[in-house]
Amino acid sequence: MNKNASRFLAGPYIIWMIGFTVIPLIMIILYCLTDGDGAFTLANVAAIATPEHRKALFLSLGLSLVSTLICLVMAYPLALILRKRNVGQGSFIVFIFILPMWMNFLLRTMAWQTLLEKNGVINGILSALHLPNLAIINTPWAIILGMVYNFLPFMVLPIYNVLIKIDDDVINAAQDLGASTAQTITKILIPLSLPGIISGINMVFVPALTTFVISNLLGGSKILLIGNVIEQEFTKGSNWHLGSGLSLVLMFFILVSMALMAKYDKEGEGTAF
């Protein structure tokens, strides 16, 4: 294909990118660096230091990290089992894990709300069995649950994708040289699947850090994550300048996360799915 033709074909995508990514990004930066009168200011970025914003940011970072860690601890053994079973991408087990991803994210989270409610399905069953009720709705635990539930497949798939590319004989060789199963996992499989792990961490951590829907639905109005604060500045508070400033701060954390990913996954192995 000649250069002009490929430029032409890339056109729709480039227009899309410019219209819906580049221009909004420039506008956010402009809003961020100005106040209501259009004068230059750094106050919007500095606003992250106020106690309430700092609290929301730290809570977001904390809950995202915990959720990411839980996802990793759950996903890695699962990916190992899937690899060992030698199931292909199209198998039923893999299908089960991808299935929730096809359902609307909002719908899935609302389903959890219904399940966890004070008089919801789970507590109904617990009451019927004369067991103590569960009171995790509107607590950080419910948010972690929502994050883990929604983002777990994003951790499983990149790890699984890297693991299935490891030749069986590499594992056999490790055992042949005297490594136990645990040593094979720690010295061979984990280092070799590091790109997938890093990629999975990113794919869980970034959306978890920026979410406001999960915290809205499962955290009630009492728990504010940085995503909720930004959302409110744009929708209710109508202070787009402050919202933009906080967004950029958040973007900084995302960029750090992406940079780490780029460093450890040079071949882009972990992202192939």
Partner: peptide, 27 residues
């Protein structure tokens, strides 16, 4: 396999790509 007094040389080498040559041999 890890308890047997023998070693295998595999068809596709099966070297550990995340290690240097010395680390491979030392494994």
């Amino acid at each position: 396999p890890n308890k047997r007094q023998l070693n295998t040389v595999f068809q596709k080498y099966a070297l550990f790509t995340h290690m240097t040559i010395a680390e491979n041999i030392a494994f």
